[in-house]
C-alpha cells in the first residue's frame, strides 16, 4: 500500500472518529484542557510568588550614616566607590539637611521629638548613603567593603542589623516558596499524567470492539493504530492552543486586578508569560502529545492482539 494513500486514509479516519464520537472527543479535549489549566495555574502562582518576593527584596535598602564631620565630597566619593561594585543596584546620597527635613516631616506631630531637636540646637544628622543591591545576600559584602581605612572612621552607623532579620526571613521564605512551588508543580504534573493516562484508556476501551473488527477484516496494526495516534496528537495540539488563548485572555483581562494587588510586579508577571509563552506552549504540547501517544499505543496493545 502506498504511504501517501495510508496517510490520507489515516487522516480521514481521524477526523471521522472525532466528529462521529463527538461527545467522547469533547470530553477528552475538555479533560486535556482542564489538566493544562491546573498546570498553568500552578505556574502562574509560582511566577507571581517569585515576582512578589523579588519586589520585596528590591525594596530592602541599607542606610550608611556618616559622622557630621564627614564632608559631602567624602561621602560622594564613598558613593562612587560603592557604585563600582557589580552587586550594587543603586546608591542614593542623602544630605544632612535632607535627613533633618525628612525627620521633621516624619515626626512633625510629635512635640517631644521636635522639642528635643530644638534643645540640641544644631543638625544632629550627618550625610548618609542609601544602598540597594541586586540580591539581599550582597548586603553583608557591601557593608564590609565600605569598612576601608578611608571611610571607616567617618561611618557613624549602618542600620543593617535591623534589616538582617527581615532579609534572612525573606531569603528563607523565598527558598520555601520555590521548594513548595516545585513540589506543587511536581504533584500536579503527576496528577495530570494519571488523568491523561486514564482518559486515553477509557477512550480506547470504548473503541475496543471496533479495533478488533478492523483487525478481523485484514487491517494491519499500523492501519488501525494511526488514526487513534493522530487523534491523540490533535487533542494535545487543540488543548495546548486553547490553553494559550485562555492564558492570553486571562492575562489581558486581569491586568487591572494584577496592578491592584501586585503593583509594578504585574508587569514582570506579564513579561514572564510573554517572553516564555512559546516555550511554555511547546513544552505543554510536547509533553501532552508524547504522553497521550505513548498511552494510546499502550492502551491499544491488548485490543490489537486479535
Amino acid at each position: 500500500m502506498s504511504v501517501y494513500l495510508s496517510i490520507m486514509r489515516a487522516i480521514k479516519f481521524t477526523f471521522q472518529n472525532i466528529l462521529r464520537n463527538f461527545w467522547l472527543s469533547f470530553i477528552t479535549l475538555t479533560i486535556f484542557i482542564l489538566t493544562l489549566v491546573t498546570v498553568n495555574a500552578v505556574l502562574f502562582v509560582n511566577v507571581v510568588a517569585q515576582e512578589v518576593l523579588e519586589s520585596v527584596e528590591e525594596r530592602v535598602e541599607v542606610t550608611i550614616y556618616f559622622q557630621p564631620e564627614a564632608t559631602e565630597d567624602l561621602v560622594k566619593s564613598a558613593q562612587g566607590y560603592l557604585r563600582g561594585f557589580g552587586q550594587v543596584r543603586d546608591v542614593q546620597f542623602v544630605s544632612a539637611q535632607d535627613a533633618l527635613d525628612s525627620f521633621k516631616e516624619r515626626h512633625g506631630a510629635d512635640e517631644i521629638v521636635l522639642a528635643s531637636l530644638e534643645e540640641i540646637g544644631s543638625n544632629p544628622f550627618g550625610n548618609a548613603l542609601v544602598v540597594s543591591t541586586n540580591s539581599t545576600d550582597d548586603f553583608e559584602f557591601i557593608l564590609d567593603a565600605i569598612e576601608t581605612p578611608e571611610y571607616a572612621s567617618y561611618i557613624k552607623e549602618k542600620d543593617f542589623t535591623d534589616y538582617e532579620v527581615i532579609i534572612e526571613r525573606i531569603d528563607s521564605l523565598s527558598s520555601r516558596v520555590r521548594l513548595a512551588g516545585f513540589a506543587l508543580a511536581a504533584l500536579f504534573a503527576f496528577i495530570a499524567v494519571l488523568i491523561i493516562f486514564n482518559t486515553i484508556r477509557v477512550a480506547i476501551y470504548v473503541h475496543r470492539d471496533e479495533i478488533g473488527i478492523m483487525k478481523l477484516v485484514g487491517a494491519n496494526d499500523w492501519f488501525v493504530r494511526a488514526p487513534f495516534l493522530l487523534e491523540a496528537a490533535l487533542y494535545s495540539l487543540g488543548a495546548a492552543v486553547l490553553m494559550a488563548i485562555m492564558m492570553f485572555l486571562f492575562l489581558h483581562f486581569s491586568q487591572d486586578w494584577l496592578i491592584g494587588y501586585f503593583g509594578d510586579s504585574h508587569a514582570d508577571v506579564n513579561a514572564y508569560f510573554v517572553d516564555n509563552g512559546p516555550v511554555i506552549f511547546l513544552t505543554e504540547f510536547g509533553v501532552l502529545a508524547v504522553l497521550s501517544l505513548l498511552t494510546t499505543a499502550y492502551a491499544m496493545r491488548r485490543y490489537l492482539r486479535v
Binding site: L5, R9, M214, G218, N220, F223
Partner: peptide, 11 residues
Amino acid sequence: AFALQVAGEKS
C-alpha cells in the same frame, strides 16, 4: 469499503 481500504486498494 473499509475491507478494501485496509488492503490499499485505490479509491
